[in-house]
Amino acid sequence: MERALAFLLLVTLAGCSSPAKDVVHSPASDPRVAGARSIPTPVPQRPSSQVWADYLIVDKSERLLIAYNNGKPIRAYRGLKFGDAPSGHKRFEGDERTPEGIYRIDTRNPRSSFHLSLRISYPNSQDRAFAAQYGRSAGGDIFIHGQPTGYRGPPLQGDWTDGCIALTNEEIEELWQIVPDGTPIEIRP
């Protein structure tokens, strides 16, 4: 028991750095996503699965991630876990917040400290400029990932990351297969 608690404490301290709505709006019909159209879209490498996502929306207040293909929802994941300070936009390294805004999935790491990880392109130039005004770092290495590598227990409860988005291992395995690098991700408050 002590060993399991020590492992859990270590995972919690390590962080990520080293009721839902029934109506789902398409990104094309949601006025909050209008800015997403202005982002140049590179041609993504299509994953091997037949159905693939071309846009992700994370609703932090609903703890919901929706994957879209051509404006239609294809997958939804509920019960997301964030950092110890889940409200508000990430401003500085160590603030344990998840960024808000439009970013991209810019790479993937099959050998991370957490079961599979998809990196979010935070910080952007505005994030870095804001942090620099205060003489601080904006941080980085924000991922969507599963449970800690090697952890064999049930999914960790509560918010336990340092600003990442945590899913169950089964959920990240599915998301990993349907999300190509370059996919836009909109993270809403």
Rank of each mutant, 00 (worst) to 15 (best):
A20Q: 12
A20Y: 09
A20D: 05
D22Q: 13
D22L: 12
V23Q: 14
V23I: 12
V24T: 15
V24M: 07
H25A: 14
H25K: 14
S26H: 03
S26G: 02
S26C: 07
S26I: 04
P27N: 02
P27W: 15
A28Y: 11
S29F: 10
D30G: 04
P31H: 05
P31Y: 10
R32S: 15
R32Y: 10
G35K: 10
R37L: 14
R37F: 13
R37E: 10
R37I: 12
R37Q: 11
S38I: 04
I39N: 01
I39S: 02
I39H: 10
P40T: 12
P40E: 13
T41H: 12
V43T: 12
V43A: 14
P44R: 06
P44D: 03
Q45V: 13
Q45G: 10
Q45M: 08
P47Y: 06
S48A: 15
S48Q: 14
S49M: 05
Q50F: 13
W52E: 05
A53T: 09
D54P: 11
D54F: 03
Y55C: 09
Y55F: 15
Y55G: 03
L56T: 01
L56W: 10
I57A: 12
I57V: 15
V58E: 06
V58G: 02
D59C: 00
D59R: 10
K60D: 00
K60C: 08
S61E: 12
S61A: 09
S61G: 08
E62F: 00
R63S: 04
R63G: 05
L64M: 13
L64T: 03
L65I: 04
L65A: 04
L65C: 02
I66Q: 02
I66N: 00
A67R: 11
A67T: 09
Y68K: 02
N69E: 15
N69W: 11
N70T: 06
K72D: 01
K72W: 07
P73N: 01
P73A: 15
R75L: 08
R75A: 15
R75Q: 11
R75T: 03
A76E: 15
A76T: 15
A76G: 13
Y77S: 00
Y77A: 00
R78I: 01
G79Y: 04
L80N: 01
K81W: 01
F82N: 02
G83T: 03
D84R: 13
D84L: 14
S87L: 06
S87Y: 11
G88C: 06
G88I: 07
H89G: 03
H89P: 00
F92M: 06
E93N: 11
E93W: 11
R97E: 05
R97W: 02
T98D: 08
P99N: 08
I102S: 13
Y103V: 00
R104D: 09
I105R: 03
I105Y: 01
I105A: 05
I105E: 05
I105K: 01
I105G: 03
D106E: 14
D106Q: 08
D106M: 00
T107N: 13
T107M: 04
R108N: 00
P110G: 08
P110V: 00
P110A: 15
P110D: 09
P110Q: 07
